[in-house]
Design a protein around this nucleic acid. Sequence first.
DNA 1: AGTCGAGTAGGTCTTACGTCA
DNA 2: TTTGACGTAAGACCTACTCGA
Length: 280
Amino acid sequence: MDVCDTSLALGLGVGGRSTASSSGTTRRRQEVPCSPLRSLMAQKQPSLMLSLPHDVYNGETNKGSEEGRQARPSSPHSTVSSFSAAYTPPTMKKEKDDGGGGGEEADTARADSRGGSYDDNDDGSPRKKLRLTKEQSALLEDRFKEHSTLNPKQKHALAKQLNLRPRQVEVWFQNRRARTKLKQTEVDCEFLKRCCESLTDENRRLHKELQELKVLKLAPPPVCMQFPAATLTMCPSCKSIRAAADGPKGGGGGGGGAEPFVVAPAKPHFFHRFIHSASC
DNA sequence: AGTCGAGTAGGTCTTACGTCA
DNA sequence: TTTGACGTAAGACCTACTCGA
């Protein structure tokens, strides 16, 4: 019999998500993309196969997620535009019904009352960058925690509430998603690194054990092995292995008080979280 | 140097519309 | 004339990248 190969395969199947993580099928992702490693981390146990399923994100996807779909204007000629008053591509129609947002574009142009840092100047002078107030940021954060994406209705409502343009809200969410994802990627990367190190150590250890076993195999069998298998019994409670006193053949004079040979319960030498299932 | 609002490029998806068998 | 399939344009929205305050 051959000794099986105990080397560990460390498969880091980093499924290539094409740049178009928007692998197309999704329109509106409702939540922060669930990192492929989330589940792994949840287990707190690296697996031997650290594969990143090709598109976990798409698992969440919602070809059928109608919330976003419904929220979306059903026709190019309908309703809501996410573009701000400041930027309206020539080809685009001005929004007609804007869900009551018709007037809010005017509002939002004067978005900040705290210094007018954001003004739509037609005179060509560069626009100053907006800094959101603490209150605005806090509310946006709250909403982001609830949903990482907004449907147009929510966007307009939030914009109105914050006295911002819908476009600004939209951009904030876009940036927030991007930066959340970036952070998550860094965390995932760190986690994978640790997994890799851990598995490398484990592999090394198993190789060492394998060598030891090979040496043992060449050595004379341990004492317990000198008994015929049929004469060995294991105590169900203490798991001790005993040589049965009255074996089929050799009971002979054993019946008396002859203390049978006792082998201490074997430690599960090979047990390890990584290989437990495999060895069982 | 890091943060963050904003612009842009390029992608997918849906809808409306025209054409054709 | 009607109808279904198909191609296309337009618009909306997304991610990724980038810039600049």
